[in-house]
Design a protein around this nucleic acid. Structure first.
Ligand code: SF4
Ligand code: SF4
Lengths: 161, 161
DNA sequence: AGTATTATAGACACCATAGATCCATAATAG
DNA sequence: CTATTATGGATCTATGGTGTCTATAATACT
């Protein structure tokens, strides 16, 4: 299991937009050149980012892309979810197996009130919990926070001289 | 990005082994029947688990599989890493791009002492940090902990009656 | 108004990997 | 020695990620 290359590209494209604060938007040509990826492919990714309201796009001469909201409001989680989708990492496929009944329904007599705990699967609970941990961390880190840290590092480098 | 079905099967197989504490090991026939998956496919997965020391396998009559160590020493992380591999979720592909130089080398004059911070990429740092969060959670949850919780729930159900 | 520029969407090809099956072989209990 | 069970390799198919190409729409500039 790995994150797709598209996620890689999307993150870097957004970082590029983030540190390029200009009057006019950044064209796909400049972006693809900077990242070293074809225009065709990158434009697909940018299009997805636009559909999800991460960036704005303006066609025509001097057109291109710009962040749709401040970089500190674009979290890593936002980006990952646009590209990788929002399904959860672990989705059980055999919920009709014998195993399942043992774990979830516990072999006891079925009663009506059971319905509200039907979804309480112990395996999924662990896997979902783990995913939530990752999500929380990604939610706390934004495009801006990476930019800030880059600046901080640069200053630190300068002081050493 | 999703966990593979094999991970699903592996977890359930181990749980089955965990709650079947008997004298003789559990055959692939019983396992595959319980999970609702073909013997051929499941045996591949079990084989992998054996190679990584999660289970023991004995061939021959009345043979089968059993846990190689106590269930409380088999974490979810162990299982996931056997099946999904140990590469990190995010691996940068374009570390020779223009982007990269901006973020990591920061445009300042290159000096000799740079080598030790060469790997300090800010993007990877975030992605790796997120993954570590997930790993930590998975490390704290074992096959046994799921079994325990199942028992706890069963008792709770019984008390209600 | 007309033209050049730029993003958009769809169709399409390619390839790696997951998912799954089959068989020949080795090891073990009886 | 035989029945049983796990093992490893070969092989097939389906799916999804990766990537290209083209026709279309929208915008700026002259
Ligand atoms: S116990 Fe949970 S993970 Fe296992 S089959 Fe049931 S729902 Fe799926
Ligand atoms: S900055 Fe980090 S993620 Fe980006 S290209 Fe360099 S090493 Fe890769």
């Amino acid at each position: 299991m790995q994150f797709s290359k598209s996620t890689d590209y999307a993150l870097h494209a957004l970082i590029h937009l983030g540190l390029s604060e200009r009057s006019h938007p950044v064209g796909i040509k400049e972006l693809s050149g900077s990242l070293g990826v074809s225009e065709s492919y990158l434009s697909k990714i940018m299009s997805k980012l636009r559909q999800d309201g991460i960036v704005r796009a303006v066609p025509g001469v001097n057109g291109g892309y710009e962040l749709a909201r401040p970089a500190e409001q674009i979290s890593f989680l936002d980006v990952i979810q646009v590209i990788e989708g929002r399904q959860q990492l672990f989705e059980c496929s055999n919920s009709s197996s014998q195993q399942h009944r043992l774990l979830v329904e516990q072999g006891s007599a079925p009663d009506k009130q059971r319905s509200l705990e039907r979804k309480e699967c112990l395996v999924e609970k662990v896997m979902l919990g783990a995913e939530q941990q990752m999500h929380q961390y990604m939610r706390e880190h934004t495009i801006q926070s990476v930019l800030d840290e880059a600046v901080k590092r640069r200053n630190h480098e300068a002081n050493k001289k």
